[in-house]
């Protein structure tokens, strides 16, 4: 079709078109070369990590390339066993024990609070919202000590409660803020139509708001999942017995306990620690992008 079209053009026009095409190709080649180089530089440490986890300890510090000379899974096998009485099975289980309730609590409480702020008028709303946003700016560190003292008085130290319970009260202002912004972009008509159809406010939330918010809620869960997976300080402060350690602490432990570090074991476990976040991200990617990209839902 295009060539037939070309044939009908004058020689001059055809030459001009070819020139344009060549120029376009050349600029595309340069653009992609730069992008690929930058991308490679950024992903290199990760590739090195994965490569090194299959190397022997000796090779890790003698070879610069990331492809192992004599690949071995010894690091994974030995690393999984750890030098303690527990294996990484336990630590992964602990991580999910912390993480799953935390994610559910966050989603539940953030949606409730965001719905309240976005859709209802109540006395003191402005001040409460200002405080909420204020906590967003507050450095985490300043609340660590009072929080620690509080949980100590409650007798919750060395349990998962200090990691779970705060999430039930929408402490992550960022998530609340994100959901409020999303809700503000959604016309209220659908909720009003639902009210006329016979919904009480809680039913409106359940049948209309939550389904519409789904992409945003999935984004919230995803963020919370990844952040909690990588959270080191929280468990470090509140959990003292090794039996309750999550992966993040266990990795640190394998560095400090072993006298001569078995780097390939540590690196192998680090790779495994990355896997859940990656898997969840790729599974939820469709919704995640929708959650960020959806602005209007008209029609």
């Amino acid at each position: 079709m295009r060539h037939a079209h070309l044939a009908s053009l004058s020689a001059e026009a055809r030459a001009e078109m070819r020139r344009t095409e060549r120029r376009f190709l050349a600029s595309a080649a340069v653009r992609y070369a730069i992008l690929i180089a930058c991308g490679f530089a950024m992903i290199y440490p990760l590739l090195w990590l994965i490569g090194a986890s299959f190397k022997t300890n000796h090779e890790i510090f003698t070879e610069i390339g990331f492809i192992p000379g004599s690949p071995t899974v010894e690091g994974y096998i030995e690393g999984w066993k750890t030098s303690t009485e527990y294996t990484f099975t336990r630590f992964f289980a602990n991580t999910f024990m912390i993480l799953i309730p935390k994610v559910i609590a966050t989603a539940f409480s953030s949606v409730l609070v965001a719905y309240g702020f976005a859709r209802f008028d109540f006395p003191g709303k402005r001040i409460l919202f200002a405080i909420l946003i204020g906590t967003l700016l507050l450095p985490n560190v300043v609340t660590r000590i009072p929080q620690y003292l509080l949980f100590r008085e409650l007798g919750w130290l060395d349990s998962f409660l200090p990691l779970w319970v705060p999430q039930m009260f929408a402490v992550d202002a960022f998530f609340v803020f994100m959901l409020i912004q999303f809700l503000r972009g959604i016309p209220r008509d659908m909720e009003e139509a639902a009210m006329i159809d016979g919904c009480k406010p809680f039913q409106v939330l359940l049948y209309i708001v939550i389904p519409i918010l789904k992409p945003a809620i999935i984004s919230v869960c995803l963020f919370q999942f990844m952040w909690s997976m990588n959270d080191f300080l929280g468990p470090l402060i509140y959990i003292s017995s090794v039996a309750k350690y999550p992966v993040a602490l266990a990795l640190k432990m394998s560095i400090s306990v072993t006298e001569s570090f078995e780097w390939n074991r540590i690196l192998s476990m680090t790779v495994l620690a990355l896997v859940p976040s990656l898997v969840v991200f790729f599974l939820a990617q469709k919704y995640f992008i929708e959650g960020i990209a959806t602005t209007g839902l008209k029609g």
Binding site: D189, M190, E192, A194, M195, I196, D197, G198, P211
Partner: peptide, 16 residues
């Protein structure tokens, strides 16, 4: 609204 015996049609349809 649901106890008033009314139904409403909105400008932008407001379908779920």
């Amino acid at each position: 609204p649901y106890e008033r015996g009314i139904a409403m049609v909105f400008q932008n349809y407001a379908l779920y």
